[in-house]
Amino acid sequence: MLSVHSLQAAYGASQVLFNVSFEIADGEAITLLGRNGMGKTTTIRTIMGLLPTLGGEIRMNERPITHATPEMVARMGVGLVPEGRQVFPTLSVRENLVATAANRLGRSRPWTLERIYEIFPRLRERANQSAATLSGGEQQMLVIGRALMTNPTLLILDEATEGLAPVIRAEIWSCIKRLKADGQSLLLIDKNIHVMKKLADRHFVLEKGRTVWSGNTADIERDAELVHSYVGI
Rank of each mutant, 00 (worst) to 15 (best):
A74C: 12
N96R: 00
G163N: 04
L50N: 08
A13R: 14
R210M: 14
L154P: 07
S92M: 00
T161H: 04
I119F: 14
G232R: 09
N216R: 00
G56M: 10
R107I: 04
R45V: 06
N192C: 01
S130K: 09
L164E: 02
S3Q: 13
A102W: 00
R75D: 13
I172V: 14
E62V: 04
E114F: 08
L186N: 06
R45Y: 09
T53P: 09
T31K: 07
H5G: 00
T43Y: 13
I220A: 04
L54T: 02
P166D: 08
L164S: 03
E83F: 11
L2S: 11
L199V: 15
V81H: 01
I172L: 13
L105N: 09
A99H: 08
A25T: 00
V78R: 06
S3D: 10
R59S: 13
F120L: 06
P64A: 11
R210Y: 01
F204P: 07
Y117F: 15
M76F: 05
E83I: 12
R124N: 10
R94H: 06
M1N: 06
A170I: 05
M196D: 12
T112W: 09
E62W: 00
D182G: 10
I233H: 11
D182H: 10
V81A: 02
H5F: 05
A165Q: 12
I119Q: 11
I220T: 03
M76R: 14
L17T: 03
N128V: 00
A74V: 15
G55E: 08
A68D: 12
W111Q: 10
R45P: 04
R169H: 00
S229N: 14
I233A: 14
V167W: 00
A165S: 15
I156R: 03
Y11T: 06
D201Y: 06
D158Y: 03
I193N: 03
S135G: 11
P82C: 08
A99T: 12
M1L: 15
K180V: 03
K180T: 06
M72N: 02
A147T: 04
G232I: 11
L2A: 10
K191L: 07
G77S: 05
T43E: 12
L123S: 03
L91E: 01
T217R: 13
N61S: 12
G209D: 11
I233F: 14
E83L: 10
M48D: 06
N36S: 13
I189L: 14
A25Y: 05
R146F: 00
R178W: 11
R178S: 13
I119V: 15
P166L: 11
T112V: 09
T112Y: 11
A10T: 07
E28A: 03
L148T: 05
L134Q: 02
L113M: 09
I176C: 10
L155E: 05
I58C: 13
T53K: 10
F18G: 07
R122D: 09
T211M: 13
N19S: 15
I172N: 05
V231E: 06
I24K: 03
E28N: 04
P89E: 03
Q139F: 01
A68E: 07
I233P: 00
V78Y: 07
I233W: 12
W111S: 05
I189A: 11
